[in-house]
Design a protein around this nucleic acid. Structure first.
Lengths: 104, 104
DNA sequence: CCCAATACCTTGAACTACGAGGTAATACTA
DNA sequence: TAGTATTACCTCGTAGTTCAAGGTATTGGG
Protein backbone atom coordinates (compact mmCIF):
# COMPACT_ATOMS: atom_id res chain seq x y z
CA UNK A 1 0.00 0.00 0.00
CA UNK A 2 2.79 2.40 0.81
CA UNK A 3 5.95 1.75 -1.15
CA UNK A 4 7.21 5.21 -0.21
CA UNK A 5 10.85 4.23 0.34
CA UNK A 6 11.05 2.54 -3.04
CA UNK A 7 9.36 5.50 -4.67
CA UNK A 8 11.86 7.94 -3.18
CA UNK A 9 14.82 5.78 -4.15
CA UNK A 10 13.70 5.57 -7.76
CA UNK A 11 12.81 9.24 -7.91
CA UNK A 12 16.17 10.43 -6.61
CA UNK A 13 18.14 8.01 -8.75
CA UNK A 14 16.20 9.19 -11.78
CA UNK A 15 17.80 12.56 -11.14
CA UNK A 16 21.32 11.32 -10.82
CA UNK A 17 23.19 8.22 -9.88
CA UNK A 18 23.91 7.76 -6.19
CA UNK A 19 25.16 5.19 -3.73
CA UNK A 20 23.22 3.73 -0.84
CA UNK A 21 24.71 5.69 2.00
CA UNK A 22 24.21 8.87 0.03
CA UNK A 23 20.56 8.06 -0.54
CA UNK A 24 19.95 7.77 3.18
CA UNK A 25 21.29 11.26 3.75
CA UNK A 26 19.68 12.77 0.66
CA UNK A 27 16.21 11.47 1.48
CA UNK A 28 16.37 13.09 4.89
CA UNK A 29 17.60 16.26 3.25
CA UNK A 30 15.12 16.69 0.41
CA UNK A 31 12.14 15.78 2.56
CA UNK A 32 13.12 18.38 5.12
CA UNK A 33 13.62 15.73 7.81
CA UNK A 34 10.02 14.62 7.29
CA UNK A 35 11.08 11.19 6.12
CA UNK A 36 14.05 9.23 7.36
CA UNK A 37 14.81 5.84 5.88
CA UNK A 38 17.51 3.69 7.41
CA UNK A 39 20.17 1.64 5.69
CA UNK A 40 18.38 -1.54 6.65
CA UNK A 41 15.58 -0.42 4.36
CA UNK A 42 17.62 1.16 1.58
CA UNK A 43 20.06 -1.64 0.79
CA UNK A 44 17.49 -4.42 0.39
CA UNK A 45 15.46 -2.12 -1.88
CA UNK A 46 18.52 -1.38 -4.03
CA UNK A 47 19.31 -5.07 -4.34
CA UNK A 48 15.75 -6.01 -5.17
CA UNK A 49 15.38 -3.27 -7.75
CA UNK A 50 18.67 -4.24 -9.31
CA UNK A 51 17.81 -7.91 -9.62
CA UNK A 52 14.44 -6.87 -11.01
CA UNK A 53 16.30 -4.94 -13.71
CA UNK A 54 15.03 -1.55 -12.56
CA UNK A 55 18.45 -0.32 -11.50
CA UNK A 56 21.93 -0.95 -12.66
CA UNK A 57 24.96 -0.85 -10.38
CA UNK A 58 28.43 0.47 -11.04
CA UNK A 59 31.24 -0.04 -8.53
CA UNK A 60 33.58 2.89 -8.09
CA UNK A 61 36.58 2.95 -5.76
CA UNK A 62 36.75 6.34 -4.07
CA UNK A 63 39.51 7.08 -1.58
CA UNK A 64 40.17 3.40 -1.10
CA UNK A 65 36.52 2.76 -0.19
CA UNK A 66 34.21 1.17 -2.68
CA UNK A 67 31.01 2.91 -3.57
CA UNK A 68 28.22 1.24 -5.48
CA UNK A 69 26.50 3.77 -7.70
CA UNK A 70 23.01 3.01 -8.92
CA UNK A 71 21.20 4.42 -11.90
CA UNK A 72 17.69 3.89 -13.24
CA UNK A 73 17.06 1.72 -16.30
CA UNK A 74 14.18 2.06 -18.72
CA UNK A 75 12.37 -0.60 -16.75
CA UNK A 76 13.01 1.40 -13.59
CA UNK A 77 11.53 4.52 -15.14
CA UNK A 78 8.34 2.64 -15.93
CA UNK A 79 8.25 1.34 -12.38
CA UNK A 80 8.73 4.87 -11.11
CA UNK A 81 5.83 6.12 -13.19
CA UNK A 82 3.69 3.34 -11.79
CA UNK A 83 4.59 4.12 -8.20
CA UNK A 84 3.95 7.82 -8.74
CA UNK A 85 0.49 7.24 -10.15
CA UNK A 86 -0.26 4.79 -7.34
CA UNK A 87 0.82 7.36 -4.81
CA UNK A 88 -1.27 10.08 -6.41
CA UNK A 89 -4.31 7.83 -6.50
CA UNK A 90 -3.96 6.95 -2.80
CA UNK A 91 -3.25 10.55 -1.94
CA UNK A 92 -6.33 11.89 -3.68
CA UNK A 93 -8.41 9.21 -2.00
CA UNK A 94 -7.11 10.05 1.45
CA UNK A 95 -7.51 13.75 0.85
CA UNK A 96 -11.11 13.20 -0.18
CA UNK A 97 -11.78 11.18 2.95
CA UNK A 98 -10.06 13.64 5.27
CA UNK A 99 -11.95 16.63 3.95
CA UNK A 100 -15.26 14.91 4.50
CA UNK A 101 -17.10 16.74 7.28
CA UNK A 102 -20.53 15.27 6.70
CA UNK A 103 -21.60 12.22 4.79
CA UNK A 104 -24.66 9.99 4.67
CA UNK B 1 4.69 3.52 7.16
CA UNK B 2 1.30 3.58 5.54
CA UNK B 3 -1.54 2.91 7.94
CA UNK B 4 -3.99 4.28 5.39
CA UNK B 5 -6.77 1.73 6.01
CA UNK B 6 -6.72 2.40 9.74
CA UNK B 7 -6.68 6.14 9.12
CA UNK B 8 -9.74 5.93 6.88
CA UNK B 9 -11.61 3.73 9.31
CA UNK B 10 -11.03 6.12 12.19
CA UNK B 11 -11.81 9.15 10.08
CA UNK B 12 -15.13 7.84 8.84
CA UNK B 13 -16.18 6.52 12.23
CA UNK B 14 -15.36 9.92 13.72
CA UNK B 15 -18.12 11.26 11.51
CA UNK B 16 -20.71 8.71 12.45
CA UNK B 17 -20.96 5.19 13.73
CA UNK B 18 -20.88 2.47 11.11
CA UNK B 19 -20.59 -1.29 10.79
CA UNK B 20 -17.81 -3.14 8.99
CA UNK B 21 -19.59 -4.01 5.81
CA UNK B 22 -20.76 -0.44 5.50
CA UNK B 23 -17.21 0.85 5.91
CA UNK B 24 -16.01 -1.22 2.99
CA UNK B 25 -18.60 0.34 0.72
CA UNK B 26 -18.22 3.84 2.12
CA UNK B 27 -14.46 3.92 1.70
CA UNK B 28 -14.80 3.05 -1.96
CA UNK B 29 -17.48 5.69 -2.27
CA UNK B 30 -15.85 8.66 -0.58
CA UNK B 31 -12.48 8.05 -2.21
CA UNK B 32 -14.11 8.00 -5.63
CA UNK B 33 -13.05 4.38 -6.19
CA UNK B 34 -9.44 5.43 -5.66
CA UNK B 35 -9.10 3.23 -2.60
CA UNK B 36 -10.75 -0.10 -2.06
CA UNK B 37 -10.22 -1.96 1.17
CA UNK B 38 -11.52 -5.49 1.56
CA UNK B 39 -13.27 -7.08 4.50
CA UNK B 40 -10.17 -9.11 5.25
CA UNK B 41 -8.48 -5.83 6.08
CA UNK B 42 -11.38 -3.99 7.72
CA UNK B 43 -12.49 -6.53 10.30
CA UNK B 44 -9.08 -7.16 11.85
CA UNK B 45 -8.56 -3.40 12.10
CA UNK B 46 -11.91 -2.94 13.82
CA UNK B 47 -11.12 -5.71 16.30
CA UNK B 48 -7.64 -4.39 17.01
CA UNK B 49 -8.82 -0.82 17.48
CA UNK B 50 -11.60 -2.01 19.75
CA UNK B 51 -9.31 -4.05 21.98
CA UNK B 52 -6.93 -1.10 22.04
CA UNK B 53 -9.79 1.01 23.36
CA UNK B 54 -9.91 3.28 20.33
CA UNK B 55 -13.34 2.11 19.24
CA UNK B 56 -16.39 0.87 21.05
CA UNK B 57 -18.79 -1.63 19.57
CA UNK B 58 -22.57 -1.80 19.83
CA UNK B 59 -24.53 -4.77 18.48
CA UNK B 60 -27.80 -3.95 16.79
CA UNK B 61 -30.18 -6.50 15.31
CA UNK B 62 -31.50 -5.17 12.00
CA UNK B 63 -33.91 -7.26 9.95
CA UNK B 64 -32.93 -10.40 11.76
CA UNK B 65 -29.26 -9.81 10.91
CA UNK B 66 -26.86 -8.53 13.50
CA UNK B 67 -24.83 -5.44 12.76
CA UNK B 68 -21.91 -4.34 14.87
CA UNK B 69 -21.75 -0.57 14.96
CA UNK B 70 -18.47 1.05 15.92
CA UNK B 71 -17.85 4.53 17.25
CA UNK B 72 -14.67 6.38 18.14
CA UNK B 73 -13.62 6.87 21.75
CA UNK B 74 -11.52 9.70 23.13
CA UNK B 75 -8.51 7.46 22.78
CA UNK B 76 -9.49 6.80 19.19
CA UNK B 77 -9.68 10.51 18.44
CA UNK B 78 -6.16 10.98 19.71
CA UNK B 79 -5.03 8.09 17.57
CA UNK B 80 -6.77 9.64 14.58
CA UNK B 81 -4.99 12.93 15.13
CA UNK B 82 -1.70 11.09 15.30
CA UNK B 83 -2.34 9.19 12.07
CA UNK B 84 -3.40 12.37 10.31
CA UNK B 85 -0.26 14.24 11.27
CA UNK B 86 1.85 11.22 10.30
CA UNK B 87 0.16 11.14 6.95
CA UNK B 88 0.64 14.86 6.39
CA UNK B 89 4.30 14.61 7.30
CA UNK B 90 4.88 11.74 4.87
CA UNK B 91 2.84 13.48 2.22
CA UNK B 92 4.78 16.72 2.42
CA UNK B 93 8.03 14.75 2.30
CA UNK B 94 7.01 12.83 -0.77
CA UNK B 95 5.71 15.95 -2.47
CA UNK B 96 9.02 17.66 -1.83
CA UNK B 97 10.93 14.73 -3.30
CA UNK B 98 8.68 14.42 -6.34
CA UNK B 99 8.95 18.07 -7.26
CA UNK B 100 12.70 17.94 -7.20
CA UNK B 101 13.99 18.39 -10.75
CA UNK B 102 17.59 19.12 -9.94
CA UNK B 103 19.56 18.52 -6.80
CA UNK B 104 23.23 18.33 -5.82
C1' DC C 1 45.90 5.61 19.20
C1' DC C 2 41.11 5.96 19.38
C1' DC C 3 36.79 7.41 17.94
C1' DA C 4 33.72 9.34 14.52
C1' DA C 5 32.30 9.06 10.00
C1' DT C 6 31.96 6.63 5.70
C1' DA C 7 30.25 2.69 3.27
C1' DC C 8 28.83 -1.73 2.63
C1' DC C 9 25.82 -5.49 4.23
C1' DT C 10 22.38 -9.21 6.74
C1' DT C 11 19.22 -10.93 9.99
C1' DG C 12 15.06 -11.52 12.76
C1' DA C 13 11.05 -9.70 14.19
C1' DA C 14 7.02 -6.87 13.82
C1' DC C 15 3.63 -4.94 11.44
C1' DT C 16 0.50 -4.32 7.37
C1' DA C 17 -2.25 -5.85 3.95
C1' DC C 18 -4.54 -9.10 0.84
C1' DG C 19 -7.14 -12.88 -1.13
C1' DA C 20 -9.58 -16.75 -0.37
C1' DG C 21 -12.50 -18.88 2.01
C1' DG C 22 -16.49 -20.01 5.43
C1' DT C 23 -21.17 -19.16 7.81
C1' DA C 24 -25.84 -17.63 7.87
C1' DA C 25 -29.62 -14.72 7.11
C1' DT C 26 -32.70 -12.03 3.98
C1' DA C 27 -34.25 -10.51 -0.67
C1' DC C 28 -34.91 -10.93 -5.26
C1' DT C 29 -35.94 -13.53 -9.46
C1' DA C 30 -37.30 -17.12 -12.31
C1' DT D 1 -40.54 -22.57 -4.71
C1' DA D 2 -35.97 -23.14 -5.94
C1' DG D 3 -31.93 -20.80 -6.73
C1' DT D 4 -28.95 -16.92 -6.74
C1' DA D 5 -27.49 -12.40 -5.13
C1' DT D 6 -26.80 -9.50 -1.33
C1' DT D 7 -26.00 -8.44 3.30
C1' DA D 8 -23.12 -9.18 7.23
C1' DC D 9 -20.12 -11.32 10.06
C1' DC D 10 -15.64 -13.66 10.51
C1' DT D 11 -10.65 -16.23 10.12
C1' DC D 12 -6.62 -18.03 8.08
C1' DG D 13 -2.32 -18.25 5.56
C1' DT D 14 0.60 -15.75 3.03
C1' DA D 15 3.04 -12.10 1.12
C1' DG D 16 4.94 -7.81 1.42
C1' DT D 17 7.00 -3.84 4.07
C1' DT D 18 9.61 -1.65 7.38
C1' DC D 19 12.50 -1.50 11.26
C1' DA D 20 16.22 -1.79 14.69
C1' DA D 21 20.16 -3.95 15.70
C1' DG D 22 23.97 -5.77 14.57
C1' DG D 23 28.47 -6.86 11.76
C1' DT D 24 32.66 -5.65 8.69
C1' DA D 25 36.18 -2.61 7.01
C1' DT D 26 38.19 1.74 5.69
C1' DT D 27 39.52 6.68 6.16
C1' DG D 28 40.13 10.94 8.77
C1' DG D 29 40.49 13.86 12.71
C1' DG D 30 41.82 14.79 17.46
Amino acid sequence: MSGVPELLVLRLLANQEMYGYELVRTIKLVTGEAISIGEGVIYPILHNLESAGALKAKRKPVNGRTRVYYSVTTKGQKRLQLLISDWQRINSGVKAALGEPEHA
